[in-house]
Every structure is written in structure tokens, then in C-alpha cells.
Computed example of a mutant assay.
Amino acid sequence: MNPRTKPAALGTTLVVGGCGFVGYHLVQQLLLDEECDDVYVLDRNVDRNLHDKALYVRGDVTDSETLRALVAKIQPRTVFHAASPIASLPARKYAEFVETNVEGTRALLAIATDSSAVKAFIYTSTIDVYANPPHTHVKESHPLWPHSNTSNEYNRTKSIADCLVRSANGPRLRTVSLRLGHAYGERQSQGLSEVLDMCSGNRMLIQIGRGDNLVEVVSAGNAATAHILAAKALLDPDRAVGDVDGEAFNISDGAAVPFWHHVRVIWTVARGEDAIRDVTVLPAWIMMAAVLVVEWLLWITTLDTVKPPTVLRRTSLEYCIYSHTYSIEKARERLRFRPFVDHDAVLAHATRWMLDYQKSEDQLKKE
């Protein structure tokens, strides 16, 4: 434990899902924070995204027995819950959404509430919990997806978890839900691998729609900073301006970017400036028609037991042609959140990192 003259504000921390993309960056910042003692990570895959000074435990958020024993042993003051399946899971694995996002969150909240040590609980939510896009400058009061809505299992179960976390707030355990924009940065896979697949080899580069629709993004570094600010505000309300516990906060760079600009930054790194000058722009109605046809065919032929591929899902269509923007004024005011913005440089670095990683993985397969 780090020597100091007074107790650390964050104390011992537990990051559930700390080997994931956002979790990796959160653990990195916690290890550098002088107000943090030991950093424990619980993840079902502790063979990736590791830091030398963090302490790793293999386990799953759905395993209540392991969780309870770990919390009793390490006595964390702060718990970060960043575990979730990726949004693009195939339909055959949809049960994981309920198991992790709903049942796992419920179990972790119960264990944290029962522990005399745990004082703060920070949940990694998402802007995808907001119902009925497109969205323009949406605030935290906007309706979430109803829990009965089955159109998108990721969005529905994240909405349920978001509500569970905020409802669990009380005198014994202070909670907060952080609704992240679409995260990007080094070690990103989801959202980056798919775009790289679209431009691999000599594939035609295709843009859907005019390309002026905006998307709310957050660098992994900014996301990690917001988590730590929220934790410190829960533990010491004097650090906040107004209420934080039991609240939700939109978290992003505070600078929405055109969706297709984001994509083109990735394409430029992967294929070069010359290659992306020849991008084919298709009218939005073509993808709208394709999505509807595929949805109906699968509904008729499989009784909705098989879902369309990611690129032909309604969610993909909405991000390709509609804007999704969200206000972070609440986080700026109450958490004193001041995001650092260098979108193109951070995304280009993340793309180069992923290309190098993919190359090394391919080389290992050949050996």
C-alpha cells in the first residue's frame, strides 16, 4: 500500500471488467492517482490489457460467490463496474446480456451494499440507453429504453442496469451512472475492427448518406477521468457542485464529430490519403431498403431466431445516417469534468495500434 499521512480518498479500488478497453484505461489512471491505494481487477479474461502494478483476479460478475469472497478479502472503498458484453454479440449469445448487465449488476450491487467497506459504486453505462433515436443534444432527463422493449437487447439490458444502479443509491452506498459516448482510443476493438474490415484489401469504400450526421464520442482517457472524478465526488461531496449520488451523467469529449469523418480517419490510416479519395457515396434509402428486406426475410424464415449481420442491423443504419448528440453540461458543472479533445490524433494512433496488433496476431498463427 502506498505510504501517506492520511487515508486515500479512493482507498482500495475494485474494477470489475478492468481488462476491457475502457477498464484498461481506468486502471491505468487509478495507478497514477495519489489518492488511490491498491487497484484490484476482476475479469473473466486476465490474459490481456494488463498493468504491472494492478492485482488481477480471474472471475465473472455473474459469480456471486467469487465476488463476495473477493470483496470480503480486499475491503474496497470504491467499486467500478465496467463489465459488459460487446453490443454486437450474435443472437445465440443474447443470454449474456441479461446475465452480465442485469443479473451481474444486481448481484454486485447487493454485495457492495452489504459490505461495510464499500462506499462508492460507479457504473459504466452508455448513451445507447436513450430511447428512440435520432437524438440531438439530449440531456440526462431524456427517456430510456423501456425494459419491455426487445428491439435491441444490449440497449435494453444496459438501460435496466442503469436504473438498478441509481435506485441502489442510499446512505450505505453512494452510486452514479456514467453514460459514455462511443469510446475510442488505444486497444479499442469494438467499432474499430468492423471499420477496418470494411476497408481491408482493395474493397470498395462506401459511404451511406450525405455524411453530415454527427456522433457523440469519448476518448478512453476522458472516460477514465470522468470515472475517477465521479468516484471522488461520491466519497467527498464537497468536491462536486450539486448532487452526484443517485444521478446519471452523459460523458463525452463534448465535441461531436461527423460519423463519416470518424470513419474516414480510420480509412486514411489503413489505406492512405490517395485510396480514400475515391469513396462511393450511396443514398441513405438504399441501406434503409436493404435493412428492411433482411429483417423481414430473417423474421419469416427463422421466426426472429437469427439476427442480421452487424452491418445490416437497424442500429448500424441509424448511426450511418442520423445524428446522435448528447449534452455534457451536467458533468461539466457538477463533476467539474473538463475533457481533453484531440479526436483525429487519438483515433489515428488507435488505428495504427490495432493494425500492428492484428499483424502480430496473424504472424503468431503462421508460426
Rank of each mutant, 00 (worst) to 15 (best):
L235C: 10
P237L: 09
P237M: 11
D238A: 15
A240R: 08
V241G: 03
V241T: 14
V241R: 13
G242N: 12
D243L: 14
V244A: 10
V244D: 02
D245F: 04
G246T: 11
G246H: 08
E247W: 02
E247D: 14
E247N: 09
A248H: 02
F249P: 00
F249R: 00
I251H: 00
S252Q: 06
S252C: 07
A256S: 11
A256V: 02
V257I: 12
V257E: 08
P258M: 06
P258H: 05
W260T: 01
H261T: 12
H261G: 02
H262M: 13
V265M: 07
I266V: 15
I266C: 01
T268N: 11
V269A: 06
A270L: 07
A270D: 04
A270H: 04
E273K: 13
E273A: 13
D274P: 01
A275E: 07
A275D: 08
A275H: 04
A275Y: 03
A275W: 04
I276S: 03
I276P: 01
R277N: 15
V279H: 01
V279S: 01
V279M: 08
T280E: 07
V281W: 07
A284L: 06
I286Q: 12
M287S: 10
M287Q: 13
M287E: 11
M288H: 14
A289P: 02
A289C: 14
A290I: 02
L292K: 14
V293W: 11
V294I: 15
L297C: 15
L297P: 03
L298N: 09
I300L: 15
I300R: 12
T302A: 08
L303N: 14
T305E: 13
T305G: 10
V306E: 12
P308N: 10
P308E: 09
P308K: 03
P309N: 09
T310Q: 10
T310N: 11
L312S: 08
R314V: 07
R314Q: 13
S316K: 04
S316T: 14
S316Q: 06
L317T: 04
Y319N: 01
Y319D: 00
Y319M: 07
Y319K: 01
Y319A: 00
C320A: 14
C320P: 00
I321N: 00
Y322S: 05
Y322H: 11
S323I: 01
H324E: 02
H324A: 04
T325F: 05
T325A: 06
Y326F: 15
Y326Q: 07
S327L: 07
S327D: 15
E329P: 00
K330H: 10
K330C: 08
K330D: 08
K330F: 03
E333T: 06
E333V: 04
E333Y: 06
R334Q: 12
R336H: 15
R336S: 14
